[in-house]
Amino acid sequence: MKIRTGLGYDVHKLVEGRELWLGGIRLDYELGLLGHSDADVLIHAICDALLGAANMRDIGYHFPDTAAETLNVDSKILLRKTVDLIATKGYRIGNVDATVCAERPKLNPHIPEMQRCLSDVMQTDIDNVSIKATTTEKLGFTGRMEGISAYATVLIEKD
């Protein structure tokens, strides 16, 4: 069996007038993330980690923010396509470990739903999807609630 690891990172600015999508679910919050797609930083970090692990470049290469077909797209579609892309090289997901950095809203109550959603999209067992939430103790752009960031590390496998 061959295994590889990948690391992904994403950040988007918080703004008024946008829905907040994280981990494939919509959260009830007064601010949303600005981006070409739905700006789901968690999914974008996971996509980058998966693509990096498979040595397939990054999310911007496969789904550019200048393309009409990715304008306002649901990031779950990008994640499903990413899983399909790594499968073309014979890889499947071993596990995902991700951290979302946000002062608000509080994310811990939403983590189980995010895990269910993402495991369904990636067609992997829910136990293979770890999501954690943290703050930056009011430091930096995240602490000032100007944006949200996410980190993801993945293990992919092929026989």
Rank of each mutant, 00 (worst) to 15 (best):
N108G: 01
V121T: 11
P105S: 06
G90P: 07
K132E: 12
E69H: 07
E137G: 11
L79W: 02
K76I: 00
T136Y: 09
D125L: 06
A102V: 06
T135Y: 06
N128D: 15
D125C: 11
D125Q: 10
I126P: 06
A67Q: 05
L71S: 12
N128K: 15
T136Q: 13
G94T: 08
S149L: 14
D120N: 13
Q123N: 12
S75N: 15
N108W: 08
V73E: 06
T70M: 03
T82Y: 07
R104L: 14
R144W: 06
V83Y: 01
V129K: 01
H110Y: 15
E103K: 11
N108T: 13
E69N: 10
P112I: 04
R92F: 01
R116V: 11
I86K: 00
G143R: 11
L118G: 06
E137D: 14
A150L: 05
N72I: 03
D127A: 14
R80Y: 04
D125V: 07
Y91H: 03
K138H: 13
P109E: 10
E103C: 10
L107T: 09
A68L: 14
T135A: 05
L118P: 08
V96R: 02
K81V: 00
A150I: 07
V73A: 12
T66Y: 03
I148R: 07
D97C: 04
P112K: 02
S149D: 15
I111S: 07
A68M: 12
R80C: 00
S119A: 13
G143S: 11
K132M: 10
N128H: 12
I111P: 08
M122T: 05
R144D: 11
N72L: 13
I131A: 05
S119M: 01
G94L: 11
F141Y: 15
